[in-house]
């Protein structure tokens, strides 16, 4: 009897999770894989094969876009890390407990506004008739209006802004778990500031750095709104290609193949990153 109750409660607890995994993650992906392996030989006639994937590699514009998306996402990740680390360090180690809460809240506030509105915020600032352009003209630095949208810098600024919170939170929580005396010991034993940072603080924060980078990289590579709105037609983001295949060209087979390729590509980058820094996925999850 007791055993049955235990088993029942386990099943009940496990059911929503299992449903979520199967219905929303496993099934769609299996569907995608199946879809991506079909090729159209005639109207309503399909065969199974790798044609969609081969098409991707034969057309430079496709894999160039993927590589461009990947490298720009890496750049965004690095920038988010460089900007986010001092902020996380300040929140976790220097700010007092009351200020810490306020700072976390400040970081969270942008998330209350939708992606779309935030991107439009940037557009208001950066466009030809926008705030920055008008202000510079008013100061007399510029003689005429200047367009700051629709280039890579705008896309990168917008993306870093959108994802930096996801870097700060895991970093701050790892650094928070670090005993202050560890840093003091680093100085006490003769280390300079840079030595303490390089040999003690960064190695200690490594799990947080890794998990922050994984989240930020995945979010950036898979983001759609920000690159389209801030980069315009020039953004050439890979998600845009996928959208095109599905919606504009109604070519679900090739869209599915692109989706799988994006997943494979980002997974490989993350795996490489973990290998290079000597971290394991389990480690990054448990330590933050």
């Amino acid at each position: 009897m007791q055993k049955d109750i235990k088993r029942l409660s386990l099943i009940l607890l496990f059911a929503p999770f299992a449903l979520w995994i199967t219905l929303l993650i496993l099934l769609p992906h299996i569907g995608m894989v199946v879809l991506s392996l079909r090729e159209k030989v005639a109207p309503r006639v399909y065969e199974y094969g790798f044609a969609n994937y081969i098409e991707f590699f034969n057309e430079p514009i496709y894999w160039n876009t993927l590589i461009r998306t990947g490298s720009m996402s890496l750049l965004v990740t690095v920038l988010a890390l460089i900007i986010g680390f001092p902020i996380a360090y300040y929140i976790a180690k220097i700010a007092g407990p009351r200020l810490r809460g306020a700072l976390f809240l400040l970081c969270l506030i942008p998330l209350w506004v939708s992606d779309l509105i935030r991107a439009f915020g940037w557009i208001l600032l950066l466009r030809e008739t926008g705030v920055i352009s008008s202000f510079l003209q008013w100061l007399g630095i510029l003689s005429g209006p200047i367009e700051m949208l629709y280039n890579d810098v705008a896309v990168i600024i917008g993306l870093v802004y959108t994802v930096i919170l996801f870097m700060i939170v895991p970093l701050a929580s790892t650094l928070d778990g670090m005993d202050n005396s560890m840093i003091e010991a680093g100085y006490n034993l003769g280390g300079r500031g840079i030595t303490v940072l390089r040999r003690i603080i960064i190695p200690y924060a490594m799990p947080g750095i890794a998990s922050g980078c994984i989240i930020v990289f995945m979010l950036t590579a898979g983001s759609y709104l920000t690159p389209i709105l801030l980069g315009g037609k020039n953004s050439s983001w890979f998600t845009e290609q996928i959208y095109d295949q599905f919606i504009t060209r109604y070519n679900w087979e090739s869209g599915a193949a692109f989706g799988m390729l994006l997943l494979a590509f980002t997974s490989i980058v993350v795996w490489l990153g973990l290998k290079l820094t000597g971290q394991t996925l389990a480690n990054t999850v448990t330590k933050t």
Partner: peptide, 26 residues
């Protein structure tokens, strides 16, 4: 002046040898 901290503050990401060698390397 060197200090042994209350919770020792040994560096968990280094092994024993590296912990002791840290100060010498500095």
């Amino acid at each position: 002046v060197k200090m042994v901290f209350q919770h020792l503050a040994l560096f968990p990401m280094m092994n024993v040898y590296e912990n002791i060698a840290y100060g010498l390397r500095c």
